[in-house]
Amino acid sequence: MTGLRMLAGRYVPGLLASVIVAIAAHSLASQYQAPVMLFALLLGMAMNFLSSEGPCKPGIDLAARGVLRLGVALLGTRITLEQIAALGWHPVLLVIASVVVTILLSMLAARAMGFNVLFGLLSGGATAICGASAALALSAALPAHPGKERATLFTVIGVSALSTAAMIVYPVIARAFGLDPIQAGVFLGGTIHDVAQVVGAGYSLSHETGDTATVVKLLRVAMLLPVILAATMITRARGGHESGQRPPLLPWFAVAFFGFAVLSSFGAIPPVLRKAGTDLSTWCLITAIAALGMKIQLKELTTVGIRPVLLMLGQTAFLAAWVLGMLWLAR
């Protein structure tokens, strides 16, 4: 009992602070129709004094790591094999090719621009898969290196801002190219970074487009597992995990992600529990990004320069052009 009290006293203050920031971010995002992850980051950075030495530091560290991994694991409750099969083979191959090509080119571009190649994997994975959620998941799997947290924070801010812009611009592009509802859904679901913005853009065109865009987006989320596996293999090869030890080939949160996806596919998880898992995943990720924001000082972002911005803009533009081009050729 005494041990539980000591653990509570050590972690509860920081966890509670992270949850409060997450609730405030969710409230603001709902009121202003803006990305909740972006609000969580900004509010977290405003409270960064809490992460200095003091009672909140251990709980904030736990939220930025443990709560993050739980949120990523629960993302698997959104995916079913039935959803993927309903798309047919062409969109599935398009999504797989888009993720692989975008990440590989991002890593090459990062190296050419003088960055750590892992920044290309992190930002490219966030662009190709599911925005802020992918950035957080990949950050958890990648080896420790100087500037990792700042790179993660910058990536989350970048994909959140670009995803919001895409939600407004991409439906206009879909109309301009004369895409039918299914093609428009594949384009929006295959290019916009965050799930919420995909849903908003898709249903702004039609119900059919919104349904297709959502399923395509969830397929991109499913690609998180093999990409995490690749990131973990890099970590093992470098022996550079935060603990100083070689991590398991598949981290527990990746195994749990796959397990939840399989259970959802076979109907083993009742709809009410799937919804609860999805909601809990969202709250865990918001809490984790709030904690990450608390750990970074805003002034550190002013030192990144223009090159990371150009890299992320290039990644986003390439993905949109690639998917649009593949759809055009498939006509």
Rank of each mutant, 00 (worst) to 15 (best):
M1A: 13
T2K: 13
R5K: 14
P13M: 10
P13R: 07
A17S: 08
V19M: 10
I20H: 11
A22R: 01
A29R: 06
S30E: 11
Y32N: 11
Y32W: 15
A40P: 00
A40R: 02
G44Y: 04
L50P: 03
P55D: 05
P55W: 04
P55C: 02
C56R: 05
K57I: 00
D61T: 12
L62V: 02
A63Y: 05
G66A: 11
L74Q: 02
L74S: 05
L75M: 15
T77M: 13
T80N: 02
E82I: 12
Q83N: 05
Q83S: 08
L87C: 06
W89K: 12
W89V: 15
H90Q: 13
H90T: 07
P91C: 12
V95D: 03
V95R: 09
S98Y: 15
S98I: 12
V100E: 00
V101T: 09
I103S: 03
L105R: 04
A110R: 05
A110S: 09
R111W: 13
G114S: 01
N116S: 13
V117L: 14
G120P: 06
S123R: 04
G131E: 00
A132G: 07
A132Y: 02
A135W: 01
A135P: 01
L138C: 07
S139R: 11
A144I: 08
H145T: 10
P146C: 06
T152L: 15
T155A: 12
V156H: 08
I157Q: 01
S160F: 05
S163T: 14
M167F: 04
I168D: 00
V169A: 01
P171W: 01
V172M: 12
A174G: 10
R175N: 08
F177A: 14
F177M: 08
P181V: 01
I182H: 13
Q183Y: 06
Q183A: 07
F187C: 10
G189Y: 04
G190M: 08
H193N: 06
A196M: 07
A201V: 04
G202K: 11
L205F: 00
K217W: 02
A222M: 13
M223I: 14
P226W: 02
A230W: 06
A230Q: 06
I234E: 04
T235E: 00
A237V: 09
G239D: 08
G240M: 07
H241S: 15
E242S: 15
E242K: 15
G244M: 08
W252Y: 15
F253E: 06
F258Q: 15
G259E: 06
F260Q: 09
F260W: 11
S264D: 11
F266Q: 03
G267P: 02
I269G: 00
I269E: 01
P270Y: 05
P271S: 09
L273G: 05
D279T: 15
D279N: 13
S281F: 12
T282I: 02
I289M: 10
I289S: 09
I289P: 03
A290L: 08
A291Q: 03
G293Q: 04
K295P: 00
L298T: 07
V304C: 12
G305R: 14
V309M: 07
L310G: 02
L311S: 04
M312K: 06
M312G: 02
L313I: 11
Q315I: 04
W322D: 01
W322Y: 11
V323A: 00
L324T: 11
L324Y: 03
M326G: 01
M326F: 14
W328E: 10
L329C: 10
L329Y: 08
